[in-house]
Design a protein around this nucleic acid. Sequence first.
DNA 1: ATGCTGACGTCGC
DNA 2: CGCGACGCCAGCA
Length: 113
Amino acid sequence: MVQDFFDSVFEVVRLVPHGRVTSYGAVAKFLGSGSSARAVGYAMNASHRVTPAVPAHRVVNRNGVLSGKHHFGSENAMADRLQAEGITVVDDTVHNFRAVFWDPECLLQNPSP
DNA sequence: ATGCTGACGTCGC
DNA sequence: CGCGACGCCAGCA
């Protein structure tokens, strides 16, 4: 039993591999609530006050757009971090989004400790 | 105490 | 094909 929808989101986001990104809907769907993508996004809002720090910058919308980059203190902070991990970000949008996209369901197919 | 908004996604018309 | 409305959760005025 999950303690909170937020905690679940934080855990999944923290599981995102370095150099990979995921989408709100993917996390929401993984949690079992594909309709709560919005709640996932809002969870990110509270992620900054959670420890350990949640790599919210690795979470983008379905279009691969850095929807919440405005919430990172600096508008370039999110894109800069993604590029620092090897992710190409152009015009606040993740290039080759499909290539760097990481789905939490991957854990179910490749349970890596 | 109540209501609204907000980092999305999916379905319908 | 384009646009709108709905559903979800929590924080904040």
